[in-house]
Design a protein around this nucleic acid. Structure first.
Lengths: 122, 122
DNA sequence: ATACGCTATGTCTAATTTGACATAGCGTAT
DNA sequence: ATACGCTATGTCAAATTAGACATAGCGTAT
Protein backbone atom coordinates (compact mmCIF):
# COMPACT_ATOMS: atom_id res chain seq x y z
CA UNK A 1 0.00 0.00 0.00
CA UNK A 2 2.96 2.28 -0.33
CA UNK A 3 2.58 3.91 3.08
CA UNK A 4 2.31 7.69 2.72
CA UNK A 5 5.73 9.33 2.69
CA UNK A 6 8.06 9.10 5.63
CA UNK A 7 10.57 11.29 3.79
CA UNK A 8 13.05 10.62 6.52
CA UNK A 9 15.90 9.30 4.43
CA UNK A 10 16.38 5.60 4.80
CA UNK A 11 19.74 5.69 3.12
CA UNK A 12 22.40 8.32 2.95
CA UNK A 13 24.64 7.40 0.04
CA UNK A 14 28.40 7.58 -0.05
CA UNK A 15 29.92 8.23 -3.42
CA UNK A 16 33.38 7.12 -4.48
CA UNK A 17 34.48 9.72 -6.94
CA UNK A 18 37.85 8.34 -7.92
CA UNK A 19 41.10 10.07 -7.01
CA UNK A 20 40.87 8.83 -3.43
CA UNK A 21 37.92 11.15 -2.97
CA UNK A 22 34.69 10.04 -1.41
CA UNK A 23 31.65 12.07 -0.54
CA UNK A 24 29.19 10.86 2.06
CA UNK A 25 26.83 12.12 4.72
CA UNK A 26 29.64 13.18 7.05
CA UNK A 27 31.29 15.69 4.76
CA UNK A 28 27.97 16.92 3.43
CA UNK A 29 26.58 17.52 6.90
CA UNK A 30 29.74 19.34 7.86
CA UNK A 31 29.67 21.47 4.73
CA UNK A 32 26.08 22.40 5.41
CA UNK A 33 26.83 23.28 9.01
CA UNK A 34 29.70 25.50 8.00
CA UNK A 35 27.35 27.29 5.63
CA UNK A 36 24.90 27.81 8.49
CA UNK A 37 27.44 28.79 11.11
CA UNK A 38 29.76 30.89 9.00
CA UNK A 39 32.88 29.26 10.37
CA UNK A 40 34.58 25.90 10.49
CA UNK A 41 35.17 26.05 14.21
CA UNK A 42 31.57 26.89 15.07
CA UNK A 43 30.38 24.03 12.88
CA UNK A 44 32.86 21.67 14.52
CA UNK A 45 31.67 22.75 17.95
CA UNK A 46 28.05 22.13 17.06
CA UNK A 47 28.84 18.76 15.58
CA UNK A 48 30.95 17.88 18.60
CA UNK A 49 34.02 16.99 16.58
CA UNK A 50 37.50 18.42 16.99
CA UNK A 51 38.22 21.49 14.90
CA UNK A 52 41.17 19.76 13.35
CA UNK A 53 39.07 16.89 12.14
CA UNK A 54 36.60 19.28 10.56
CA UNK A 55 39.39 21.23 8.95
CA UNK A 56 40.91 18.02 7.63
CA UNK A 57 37.65 16.88 6.10
CA UNK A 58 37.25 20.22 4.38
CA UNK A 59 40.86 19.99 3.27
CA UNK A 60 40.32 16.67 1.51
CA UNK A 61 37.39 18.22 -0.31
CA UNK A 62 39.44 21.25 -1.31
CA UNK A 63 42.16 18.97 -2.63
CA UNK A 64 39.80 16.57 -4.35
CA UNK A 65 37.82 19.13 -6.27
CA UNK A 66 39.26 21.49 -8.83
CA UNK A 67 38.40 24.54 -6.71
CA UNK A 68 37.88 24.98 -2.96
CA UNK A 69 34.53 24.34 -1.36
CA UNK A 70 34.95 27.14 1.17
CA UNK A 71 36.02 30.76 1.15
CA UNK A 72 37.96 31.22 4.37
CA UNK A 73 39.31 34.37 5.91
CA UNK A 74 41.69 34.47 8.83
CA UNK A 75 40.99 36.56 11.91
CA UNK A 76 38.53 36.15 14.76
CA UNK A 77 35.72 38.01 16.45
CA UNK A 78 33.57 38.77 13.43
CA UNK A 79 36.73 39.15 11.40
CA UNK A 80 37.39 35.66 10.10
CA UNK A 81 35.27 32.72 9.17
CA UNK A 82 34.25 30.56 6.26
CA UNK A 83 31.58 30.71 3.60
CA UNK A 84 30.53 28.17 1.03
CA UNK A 85 31.79 28.73 -2.47
CA UNK A 86 29.52 28.13 -5.45
CA UNK A 87 31.04 24.67 -5.67
CA UNK A 88 30.36 24.04 -2.02
CA UNK A 89 26.73 24.94 -2.44
CA UNK A 90 26.44 22.93 -5.62
CA UNK A 91 27.77 19.87 -3.84
CA UNK A 92 25.13 20.11 -1.16
CA UNK A 93 22.38 20.67 -3.67
CA UNK A 94 23.47 17.78 -5.85
CA UNK A 95 23.92 15.44 -2.91
CA UNK A 96 20.52 16.33 -1.50
CA UNK A 97 18.92 15.76 -4.88
CA UNK A 98 20.53 12.36 -5.16
CA UNK A 99 19.58 11.38 -1.66
CA UNK A 100 16.01 12.51 -2.15
CA UNK A 101 15.66 10.66 -5.40
CA UNK A 102 17.17 7.53 -3.96
CA UNK A 103 14.80 7.62 -1.02
CA UNK A 104 11.68 8.25 -3.04
CA UNK A 105 12.32 6.20 -6.16
CA UNK A 106 13.86 3.21 -4.47
CA UNK A 107 11.71 2.97 -1.37
CA UNK A 108 10.46 -0.45 -2.37
CA UNK A 109 13.97 -1.84 -2.76
CA UNK A 110 15.06 -0.28 0.50
CA UNK A 111 12.09 -1.68 2.36
CA UNK A 112 12.90 -5.10 0.98
CA UNK A 113 16.38 -4.86 2.42
CA UNK A 114 15.12 -3.64 5.75
CA UNK A 115 12.54 -6.38 5.97
CA UNK A 116 15.33 -8.91 5.57
CA UNK A 117 17.04 -7.51 8.63
CA UNK A 118 13.94 -8.07 10.68
CA UNK A 119 13.21 -11.49 9.38
CA UNK A 120 9.98 -13.27 8.43
CA UNK A 121 8.45 -12.51 11.82
CA UNK A 122 9.15 -8.77 11.46
CA UNK B 1 19.97 12.79 -25.24
CA UNK B 2 20.24 10.54 -22.25
CA UNK B 3 23.24 8.70 -23.66
CA UNK B 4 22.28 5.08 -24.30
CA UNK B 5 22.95 2.99 -21.23
CA UNK B 6 26.43 2.46 -19.90
CA UNK B 7 24.92 0.31 -17.15
CA UNK B 8 28.27 0.21 -15.44
CA UNK B 9 27.24 1.30 -11.98
CA UNK B 10 28.41 4.78 -11.12
CA UNK B 11 27.62 4.29 -7.49
CA UNK B 12 27.63 1.26 -5.26
CA UNK B 13 25.56 2.15 -2.23
CA UNK B 14 26.36 1.27 1.35
CA UNK B 15 23.38 0.82 3.61
CA UNK B 16 23.41 1.40 7.34
CA UNK B 17 20.83 -0.98 8.67
CA UNK B 18 20.98 -0.15 12.35
CA UNK B 19 22.34 -2.60 14.92
CA UNK B 20 25.91 -1.81 13.92
CA UNK B 21 25.20 -3.59 10.67
CA UNK B 22 26.11 -2.12 7.34
CA UNK B 23 25.82 -3.63 3.91
CA UNK B 24 27.92 -2.35 1.05
CA UNK B 25 29.67 -3.49 -2.09
CA UNK B 26 32.37 -5.37 -0.19
CA UNK B 27 30.13 -7.82 1.62
CA UNK B 28 27.83 -8.18 -1.36
CA UNK B 29 30.69 -9.00 -3.71
CA UNK B 30 32.04 -11.49 -1.23
CA UNK B 31 28.66 -13.10 -0.77
CA UNK B 32 28.27 -13.42 -4.51
CA UNK B 33 31.71 -14.91 -4.89
CA UNK B 34 31.04 -17.47 -2.21
CA UNK B 35 27.92 -18.42 -4.09
CA UNK B 36 29.94 -18.88 -7.26
CA UNK B 37 32.87 -20.68 -5.69
CA UNK B 38 31.04 -22.87 -3.24
CA UNK B 39 33.41 -22.06 -0.39
CA UNK B 40 34.54 -19.13 1.69
CA UNK B 41 38.20 -19.89 1.22
CA UNK B 42 38.00 -20.15 -2.56
CA UNK B 43 36.14 -16.85 -2.67
CA UNK B 44 38.73 -15.25 -0.42
CA UNK B 45 41.51 -16.53 -2.63
CA UNK B 46 39.89 -15.12 -5.74
CA UNK B 47 39.28 -11.80 -4.08
CA UNK B 48 42.83 -11.76 -2.76
CA UNK B 49 41.82 -11.20 0.82
CA UNK B 50 42.80 -13.32 3.84
CA UNK B 51 40.40 -16.15 4.63
CA UNK B 52 39.95 -14.83 8.10
CA UNK B 53 38.83 -11.47 6.83
CA UNK B 54 36.29 -13.11 4.56
CA UNK B 55 35.06 -15.29 7.36
CA UNK B 56 34.77 -12.29 9.65
CA UNK B 57 32.72 -10.35 7.12
CA UNK B 58 30.39 -13.27 6.72
CA UNK B 59 30.23 -13.60 10.47
CA UNK B 60 29.03 -10.03 10.94
CA UNK B 61 26.31 -10.72 8.42
CA UNK B 62 25.30 -13.91 10.18
CA UNK B 63 25.10 -12.03 13.46
CA UNK B 64 23.32 -9.03 12.04
CA UNK B 65 20.55 -10.88 10.30
CA UNK B 66 18.04 -13.10 12.00
CA UNK B 67 19.28 -16.16 10.15
CA UNK B 68 22.66 -17.01 8.59
CA UNK B 69 23.51 -15.98 5.06
CA UNK B 70 25.50 -19.13 4.37
CA UNK B 71 25.08 -22.83 4.87
CA UNK B 72 28.53 -24.09 5.78
CA UNK B 73 29.76 -27.64 6.18
CA UNK B 74 33.10 -28.58 7.64
CA UNK B 75 35.48 -30.90 5.83
CA UNK B 76 37.66 -30.40 2.79
CA UNK B 77 38.28 -31.89 -0.64
CA UNK B 78 34.72 -31.85 -1.96
CA UNK B 79 33.48 -32.54 1.56
CA UNK B 80 33.07 -29.09 3.03
CA UNK B 81 32.18 -25.71 1.69
CA UNK B 82 29.56 -23.03 1.84
CA UNK B 83 26.37 -22.28 -0.02
CA UNK B 84 24.12 -19.28 0.04
CA UNK B 85 20.98 -19.58 2.10
CA UNK B 86 17.70 -18.15 0.85
CA UNK B 87 18.48 -15.04 2.86
CA UNK B 88 21.92 -14.81 1.34
CA UNK B 89 20.48 -14.95 -2.15
CA UNK B 90 17.74 -12.49 -1.27
CA UNK B 91 20.32 -10.01 -0.03
CA UNK B 92 22.19 -10.11 -3.30
CA UNK B 93 19.02 -9.79 -5.33
CA UNK B 94 17.73 -6.88 -3.28
CA UNK B 95 21.07 -5.11 -3.30
CA UNK B 96 21.43 -5.53 -7.04
CA UNK B 97 17.94 -4.20 -7.59
CA UNK B 98 18.68 -1.16 -5.47
CA UNK B 99 21.96 -0.52 -7.17
CA UNK B 100 20.44 -0.88 -10.61
CA UNK B 101 17.60 1.43 -9.79
CA UNK B 102 19.90 4.00 -8.28
CA UNK B 103 22.11 3.94 -11.33
CA UNK B 104 19.33 4.18 -13.87
CA UNK B 105 16.90 6.51 -12.12
CA UNK B 106 19.45 8.89 -10.70
CA UNK B 107 21.92 9.08 -13.54
CA UNK B 108 21.33 12.80 -13.94
CA UNK B 109 22.07 13.53 -10.29
CA UNK B 110 25.14 11.32 -10.38
CA UNK B 111 26.45 12.97 -13.50
CA UNK B 112 26.00 16.34 -11.86
CA UNK B 113 28.17 15.23 -8.98
CA UNK B 114 30.80 13.79 -11.25
CA UNK B 115 30.91 16.90 -13.38
CA UNK B 116 31.69 18.89 -10.26
CA UNK B 117 34.73 16.75 -9.65
CA UNK B 118 36.05 17.53 -13.08
CA UNK B 119 35.28 21.21 -12.97
CA UNK B 120 33.95 23.67 -15.54
CA UNK B 121 36.67 22.73 -18.01
CA UNK B 122 35.82 19.04 -17.84
C1' DA C 1 47.45 47.77 23.25
C1' DT C 2 44.68 44.00 24.53
C1' DA C 3 41.49 40.40 24.15
C1' DC C 4 38.96 37.34 21.49
C1' DG C 5 37.92 33.97 18.03
C1' DC C 6 39.10 32.43 13.89
C1' DT C 7 42.32 29.72 10.27
C1' DA C 8 46.06 26.72 9.80
C1' DT C 9 49.44 23.71 11.33
C1' DG C 10 52.47 20.38 14.20
C1' DT C 11 53.08 16.63 17.42
C1' DC C 12 52.23 12.76 19.99
C1' DT C 13 49.22 9.14 21.95
C1' DA C 14 45.43 6.11 22.00
C1' DA C 15 42.24 3.42 19.70
C1' DT C 16 40.82 0.83 15.98
C1' DT C 17 41.42 -1.88 11.91
C1' DT C 18 44.05 -4.77 8.95
C1' DG C 19 47.19 -8.47 7.93
C1' DA C 20 49.99 -12.41 8.62
C1' DC C 21 50.57 -16.81 10.87
C1' DA C 22 49.33 -20.57 13.60
C1' DT C 23 46.33 -24.30 15.00
C1' DA C 24 42.45 -27.47 15.84
C1' DG C 25 39.30 -30.51 13.86
C1' DC C 26 36.43 -32.51 10.35
C1' DG C 27 34.93 -34.98 6.00
C1' DT C 28 35.73 -36.74 1.57
C1' DA C 29 38.87 -39.00 -1.76
C1' DT C 30 42.70 -42.01 -2.65
C1' DA D 1 45.80 -44.65 7.06
C1' DT D 2 47.01 -40.59 4.72
C1' DA D 3 46.55 -36.41 2.36
C1' DC D 4 43.98 -32.58 1.15
C1' DG D 5 41.08 -28.61 1.64
C1' DC D 6 37.66 -26.80 4.11
C1' DT D 7 35.48 -24.30 8.54
C1' DA D 8 36.49 -22.04 12.68
C1' DT D 9 39.31 -19.86 15.96
C1' DG D 10 43.40 -17.66 18.44
C1' DT D 11 47.33 -14.59 18.70
C1' DC D 12 50.09 -10.78 17.81
C1' DA D 13 52.42 -7.27 15.14
C1' DA D 14 51.77 -3.66 11.79
C1' DA D 15 49.45 -0.11 9.78
C1' DT D 16 46.05 3.18 9.70
C1' DT D 17 42.91 6.32 11.79
C1' DA D 18 41.02 9.17 15.34
C1' DG D 19 41.66 12.25 19.29
C1' DA D 20 43.81 15.40 22.37
C1' DC D 21 46.87 19.28 22.97
C1' DA D 22 49.82 22.85 21.64
C1' DT D 23 51.09 26.79 18.89
C1' DA D 24 51.55 30.44 15.40
C1' DG D 25 49.48 34.25 13.34
C1' DC D 26 45.84 37.24 11.77
C1' DG D 27 41.86 40.58 11.89
C1' DT D 28 38.16 42.83 14.10
C1' DA D 29 36.25 44.97 18.30
C1' DT D 30 36.93 47.30 22.62
Amino acid sequence: MSQGKPLRPLVRPRLYLGNELSLGPGKIDLLRKVGECGSISAAAREMAIPYKRAWLLIDTLNRGFPTPVLDTTIGGKAGGGARLTALGEALIVAYDALEAKLNTEATAELETLLSLVRGPAG
